[in-house]
Nucleic acid binder design. Sequence first.
DNA 1: CCGTTCATTACCGCTGTGTGAACGGGGCAC
DNA 2: GTGCCCCGTTCACACAGCGGTAATGAACGG
Lengths: 226, 226
Amino acid sequence: MAAFAVFPDPPPPELARALDLAGYQWIPVPDDLAVERLEPDEGWGGAIIAADQQAETAFAVCRALRKRDVPVSPLVLLVRGSQLDELEMRDELYDDFCLAPFQPREFEARLKHQLWRTGTGTKPELIEYGDLVLNLETYQAMVTGRPLDLTYMEYELLKFFAAHPGKVFTREILLNRVWGYDYYGGARTVDVHVRRLRAKLGEEHAGLIQTVRSVGYRFGQSRWSS
Amino acid sequence: MAAFAVFPDPPPPELARALDLAGYQWIPVPDDLAVERLEPDEGWGGAIIAADQQAETAFAVCRALRKRDVPVSPLVLLVRGSQLDELEMRDELYDDFCLAPFQPREFEARLKHQLWRTGTGTKPELIEYGDLVLNLETYQAMVTGRPLDLTYMEYELLKFFAAHPGKVFTREILLNRVWGYDYYGGARTVDVHVRRLRAKLGEEHAGLIQTVRSVGYRFGQSRWSS
DNA sequence: CCGTTCATTACCGCTGTGTGAACGGGGCAC
DNA sequence: GTGCCCCGTTCACACAGCGGTAATGAACGG
């Protein structure tokens, strides 16, 4: 998971301890100007802003995190009870808040809930590998933005492959795991479906499914490839 | 604004006072069975569930409010600190929570923020998808301005579809969610209703409901959000 | 050079879905 | 109570297309 942005620098000891105990990565951010400078390559995974001290700078950091094309989320505030008025008209600057001094349990529960909400709440269930994307909810597949018109078995086979990239499967294993344990049929059936999958993936991505001679098939790149 | 559902009946005095002082309309709900019976014509505007007593019934009420085509939102929980563990794995049952005993200011701030986040705090009386508009209050449906003369089951099925665009549902799921958990009948019933829906939608929009062979049906196009 | 393994194509049986029609129960008017 | 009508459900049938198999050709390895 990407690191959290945490304000101020250094953060309150109890906040740092709570984050460390819960196992989250975090990076202290001293002010709004540092938001972009310190941002990891993979982006911020969220933000915890203690606004009980240096409230003005704290809200400036919030603005820097939220006034961008893709607002950083979740953003959890730490405020004193006397600051509740300041939250009005600032709804867009935070997702949740926690009253200081806070109970670690409450803080962790709020953080987890926000992570769930901003995670599974919005993103569909996907299997991705390189340019290939399988949407498990809509039963649709795409490669480099081009939708694939797959039949049921083709989709199931590709789903199984994409869920276990780099691993080699014999035809018997594939028949068991994809077609079902009670299926008894020729092993050549797998070949034909692999062939149809390669055709629909297009010449460009046909290599995603590699044949391992006298063994079976492998999806994606082997870990030992040079 | 539509009234809140409040559990239990009667609610804790401090909760009732906080809601009254803030000027919200609310209706006490004794249990999960009463959720539908007591629902106002305009639907629930949200829910405040005190789970510090009768936790089991409280969560049953939450489920009744959330496991519907259009989940009731916002839903704010009241819990004791010792109940924080129970919130895990129940993320989908609530939007925010407040620790009891609560400060009225904090409770009000949370409620206001949730009302802002869920969008003016009113349950959408319309479901729209492209040219299709479902009016939940008047039980009417229109497509490109042309009113559709739908029967009850047709309307319910279309409402369920439109509330979950892009997602694939098996016939069994549809029978459970639209016809009801206690329904036992042939899966082909779904086919016939889909066919009648497509006919009434007109040739132009019949494609809104797509059949996913050997899986089920899907409404509309899936969103390929990155 | 031969045997083995895989790719490719064509073909056919069968499952799943669309379509039309009929049944039956519940509700409403009278 | 009685008749009718509407709506939900089920049945029968046709058909498209999916999946499995066989046949043939090509590639690989020893």
